[in-house]
Amino acid sequence: MIRVERVGPLATIQDLGRPGWFDSGVGIAGAADRASLRLANRLVGNPEGAAGIEVLLGGLELLADRHLTVAVTGAAAPASVDGRPMGAASVLEIEAGQRLRLGFAMAGLRSYVAVRGGIDVPAVLGSRSRDTLSGLGPDPLRAGDVLPVGPPPRLYPIVDVAPVLPPASGLLTVHVIPGPRDDWFSSVTALFAGDWTVSSATDRIGARLDRRSGPALERRVSSELPTEGMALGSIQVPPSGQPVVFLADHPITGGYPVIGVVADAEVDLVAQARPGQRIRFRPCLT
């Protein structure tokens, strides 16, 4: 068991989501930065889809009630065990009575804490993820919560640390596949001209963007668009002209045109972009 002693802005239980429920109106959800959760799980010997803790900006404190093997990945939130600093993406051995603390992230937005055995809360529709849009899954963590840990896997990797770089804190370049509704705009090149800035209204549903430099996204078609399916990474453009990049908890349908879709491998990068960070879109060449 793990006791939650302190929570920062937000901490939720996340795995790789609940696919297969679109016909019931339920999205996949899951970790916003899937690569970081997968890495944390691999470091402690879990299956990649085991449930861990997604931590927004840091501020989490956990108390172990027995020996635990833990890894912290994602945003560069300084980790310490009983006040002793620990390296990023390291395998941490924590004894009963010791506390793992995450400070404020210096780069990136979301950190991931994996525990060998996984966080063993009850699954909802096959997943332990919290979907902040639908309200499915376990509630966001609060001080005083006690989290069960599942049985440890039989195999265990021999590794101390993963040589990964922290999320970028400067200009982020993201590749986009134009369409399916790029023809609704006067020019799709307006998306690729200049820079955008991540808004403070960003959440797990989507990264909302403000224009930093370059031309506005002007609609060529003024009629309403029938509701259609929305994919992870879709760049939806509401009437304001300020696009939203859909993230893990995005709605599965929408009525505003999608000018392009972020390449799947780079959605995780957008999920780590902090408010005020600059984003530049580039068209995919293949």
Rank of each mutant, 00 (worst) to 15 (best):
I2P: 07
R6I: 09
A11N: 04
T12I: 12
I13T: 00
R18H: 04
P19K: 15
F22P: 01
F22V: 09
G25M: 11
A32D: 01
R38A: 02
A40Q: 01
V44F: 05
G49K: 10
I53A: 00
E54C: 08
L57M: 11
G58P: 12
G59Q: 02
E61A: 14
A64C: 14
D65Y: 14
R66H: 12
A71K: 00
V72N: 00
S80M: 08
V81Q: 07
G83I: 08
P85K: 13
A89K: 14
L92C: 08
L92D: 00
A96P: 06
Q98M: 12
S111I: 09
Y112R: 09
Y112L: 12
R116T: 04
I119F: 13
I119V: 13
D120N: 13
V121L: 14
P122L: 09
R128G: 00
S129I: 02
S134M: 08
G137Q: 07
P138V: 00
P140D: 00
A143L: 06
D145A: 08
V149S: 00
G150T: 01
D160N: 15
D160W: 15
V164D: 03
S169R: 13
L171M: 13
L171W: 14
H175W: 15
I177K: 15
P178V: 03
P178T: 03
P178D: 00
D182V: 02
D182I: 05
W184H: 10
S186A: 09
V188R: 15
A193K: 15
G194Q: 10
D195F: 14
S199W: 09
R204A: 02
L217I: 11
R220C: 07
V221E: 14
S223P: 12
G229R: 15
M230N: 08
A231R: 11
L232A: 07
V237R: 08
P239A: 01
P239G: 02
S240N: 05
V244T: 09
H250N: 09
T253V: 13
G255L: 04
V258R: 10
E266N: 11
V267Y: 10
D268A: 08
V270Y: 11
R274Y: 14
R274C: 06
Q277N: 11
L285H: 15
L285Y: 15
